[in-house]
Write a protein that binds this DNA or RNA. Structure first.
Lengths: 190, 190
DNA sequence: CAATAACGATACGATACCGTATCGTATATC
DNA sequence: GATATACGATACGGTATCGTATCGTTATTG
């Protein structure tokens, strides 16, 4: 038989999957979720459509898999003060929102509005993104730097919200400076 | 000839257009921009596809027209204080974000990410939505209730952002009470 | 080197769309 | 009531898509 060690993966499979994923990501950022077709992924990746369907049972599975790997959870900074930590986090989020991947997000949100599977994915990505915030806020509350009765989610919303707003509504430049100001005001608003 | 007075519109045309628009709106809220097909609109409205194409040259035109009529610009409240005005505005926005139409917005944002025509539409809708805010802020600044050096757009973002965030990210209930709190904190953050 | 598994190319059936064309029918206007 | 106009039904051509089937070719593994 070909495979004795089940941990060993065929190099051909690895390459195919990787090429397909790369092409899918590219299409995703360019055309959004709705703009990804298996045929086009096949063309771009140079991987035969047949082969794609060998690894993903359906288009939805491919998209879901691709989106799942968008994970880029920010690490919780530790500058010594809540204000510093939150500013740093806001900067890091701002970076993400100016990056290439950010254009996929509206797509996901739109789809999540109706597709429960994508809604779950969106929730998961959101949770991962928020983990650092919760860590920072929890630490500050433990140190007495923040009152224990403020809901972390409110503070997070007061920072994330304006960032998103700038990116998708007012369309003002999303600089790191702007991010710091937003974090600062959110903290003062409590 | 049939029409001497150019202001008089054929009743048949009026009815057709109205039925098509109604069906389009329904589909929009259910399926988003991408889910609206002319054939389905025809089925739902009972208006022949041929007739639809008599009034709208293309699918895109139909969608654009439908979205244009989403306009529901809030009126600027006048409670006597900025705090009251902003809270009232926040409530009014929250109402909108819990209504049926809100599910169309992600669709529009997603499309605007790539389609310049929809981007323009989105910008226009946004401007209309913001008019009341600018009025309130301008009034407050004239009265000296707000410092003149705060950018209105920052304040608006500090209110709208968290509202949007609740609706599409944290998915916490978007109550009027929550809206008031958000407005309040935004004001304090300045 | 032989067997096994993955791959590519191609074709296919089934849908769902868009937008146009034709033509007979109903209806508003004069 | 006559005429112009809008409408509905139907069919069509063209394209894009999904997902499957077939089969010869290539690469990996033992």
């Amino acid at each position: 038989m070909a495979i004795d060690n089940p941990n060993r993966v065929d190099e051909r499979v690895r390459r195919s999957k990787q090429a397909v994923m790369a092409a899918t990501f590219g299409l995703l950022t360019e055309a959004g979720l709705g703009g990804v077709s298996v045929d086009e992924v096949s063309r771009r990746s140079g991987v035969a459509k047949t082969t794609i369907y060998r690894h993903w049972p359906t288009r939805a599975a491919l998209l879901l898999d691709a989106c799942s790997q968008l994970t880029a959870r920010p690490e919780a900074p530790d500058t010594g003060s809540v204000a510093g930590d939150l500013a740093a986090l806001a900067e890091s989020i701002a970076d993400r929102l100016t990056g290439r991947w950010s254009s996929v997000l509206p797509s996901v949100i739109d789809a999540a509005e109706r597709d429960p599977e994508l809604a779950a994915l969106h929730a998961r990505l959101h949770d991962e993104m928020m983990a650092a915030f919760h860590e920072v806020v929890g630490r500050a509350q433990a140190k007495g730097e923040l009152p224990k009765d403020v809901a972390a989610s409110d503070l997070i919303g007061a920072i994330m919200g304006p960032l998103f707003y700038r990116r998708w509504f007012s369309r003002e430049p999303l600089t790191r400076e702007a991010a710091r100001t937003i974090a600062d005001r959110a903290l003062r608003g409590l």
